[in-house]
Amino acid sequence: MSEDPKKSTSIVEDFKVPWYGYVALIFAIIFFSGVFAKEKSWITVLDFNTINGTYGVMKDAAKATFMGQGGTGARDGFLFALGLIPAVMLALGVVEVVDHLGGLKAGQKLLTPVLRPLLGIPGIAGLALVTSMQSTDAGAGMTRMLRETNFVTEKEKTIFCAFQFSAGGTITNYLSSGAALFSFMTVPIIAPLVVIFAMKIFGANVMRMYLKRVKED
């Protein structure tokens, strides 16, 4: 494109529409028009009401919850998600209390001496590690600080990031998003969490061994 010194300021702005803009518009018209509502085949994917779906019904009143049974699409998803929220509120409420009482600090204290043998990173990274359990972003910021202040080497930082990258924000995510599935699981709530921690440590050690073969620069 060439520079135009007299850049147009007129109200009839000349703008470009990408080709997919027109495709999107055509899609939107078809999607909301309901023209395919009566079809039976895969073409109904282009019908708003098909994707919006249906609420479940009380087929078996003794077993159905408020979301009913046999629902589909967005409507079914909405009621399902609504049913998840109490578990998330309860879980995060309890985590907040545990944190308030110093439970996480206790965890940090216990972790500090084992970080070197377990992950090959210095004990000073304990706070960042505990923080990364609650928030990926806060953990990432603290990890950056640890490196900038030279408390960890470049290699140690990379190992630490391998630990954080898999199942980031572990506790918060597991107890919020994961809580959604707790009531359907066939194992105790703690079991998947133990496996997650074991694999995080495993993964960090894979990185630790990999970095032994790489020159520090």
């Binding site: 998840l84 929220i85 998330v88 509120m89 309860l90 907040e96 919020s176």
Partner: peptide, 15 residues
Amino acid sequence: DGARKGWNVGVSSIL
């Protein structure tokens, strides 16, 4: 406070 965080996560992320 924690439960409120849970509500916010629920409404703004999970739903």
